[in-house]
Computed example of a mutant assay.
Amino acid sequence: MAASEKGRPSLFWPLAAIVVPIASYLAKLSFIGRDKLPREGAFVLAPNHYTEFDPIIVALAVWRMHRLPRFMAKESLFRVPVVGWVLRNTGMVPVARTSSASAAKQTMTQSRELVEHGRGVIVYPEGTLTRDPELWPMRGKTGAVRLALAGDIPLIPMAHWGVQEIMPRYGKKISFWPPRKRVQIIVGDPIDLSDLRGRASEQAALTEATRRLMDAIAELLEQLRGEKAPAERWNPADHGQKETGRLDS
């Protein structure tokens, strides 16, 4: 059962009754460091991202670690009928897609609300599926660290491996057989941002914090895969690739 939180939306429970059994049929999760996710209080959880099925597995993992899985979601989705209602009633957090000043103000508001309600949020720091051909974490964006720094919230790296056996990157079909494919989950120690505290508006601080985060995620994934990640994160711009959307084959 997920830990109690102030203002907990009840819609989580009927959704969990549907999603958890299906996800549990598809994946057998094994955990390393599950006690590193706080059982109460605010947190920003930053996992790697290499298939479109990742959010289901990450949500199941967070649920199994006794917290409610809330994600950052595009602000435009909150205006879609039904979808927006579901997002709002499960406490999902809208991604600021406005001017820099407005985005900064929204980030501060979001951070205060996370702390006030003792909630956690899951943020994919890469912003999309990795472009790295070997599925290693690529260059990160600053959203996760911006949110953590703005509210002095623990920023926790996480890695998982095995979801590609359920659905490959950009795949359109889920593999239902054999069932319960092994997916490894590893949670790391919070990123040390003490020297960057109070600098959420400084680009240099955001860049450095993001580097630390992506390096930590890559190191966690190295443990699961038993091999070394590339020394430098994949940069889509260096390979003529778009930053968002599906990767053209």
Rank of each mutant, 00 (worst) to 15 (best):
A59L: 13
S102N: 13
H49W: 10
A27Q: 11
V82M: 09
K74V: 10
K36D: 00
L77P: 01
Y124T: 00
P47E: 05
A101G: 04
I22G: 04
V19G: 02
R39A: 10
L114F: 01
T90Q: 13
P69W: 13
S99C: 08
R119S: 11
E126S: 07
V44L: 10
A96Q: 12
A104M: 13
E116I: 03
S111G: 08
W85Q: 13
E126N: 09
P47L: 12
A103H: 06
P55C: 04
N48E: 10
F53T: 03
T90N: 12
G91C: 03
A42M: 05
A101M: 07
R79S: 15
K28C: 10
R119Q: 14
V44R: 05
V86N: 08
I32Q: 12
D54L: 04
Q110G: 11
S100T: 14
D54F: 02
P47D: 08
H66T: 10
K28E: 12
I57V: 15
S24V: 08
I22Q: 14
W85M: 12
Y50E: 08
H49A: 14
F43Y: 13
E40N: 08
F53H: 00
P55S: 00
T98L: 10
A42N: 04
A104C: 00
F31Q: 05
A101Y: 06
R119V: 02
S30D: 12
I56E: 07
V123M: 09
E52G: 12
S24P: 01
R64P: 02
K36A: 09
E113H: 10
E113G: 02
R79A: 15
V121S: 06
S102T: 15
S102M: 14
I32F: 00
H117T: 09
N48I: 07
R88I: 01
T98S: 14
E113M: 11
R79T: 13
I22S: 13
Y50I: 00
P94S: 10
R88V: 01
V121M: 04
L45E: 00
E126K: 02
L60H: 14
K74D: 02
F71Y: 14
M92Y: 08
A73N: 09
Y25K: 13
V58L: 06
P55H: 10
A101R: 15
S99W: 07
A42R: 04
E75Y: 12
I56N: 07
I32M: 03
E52S: 11
P38E: 10
G118T: 01
P94I: 07
V95H: 06
L68W: 14
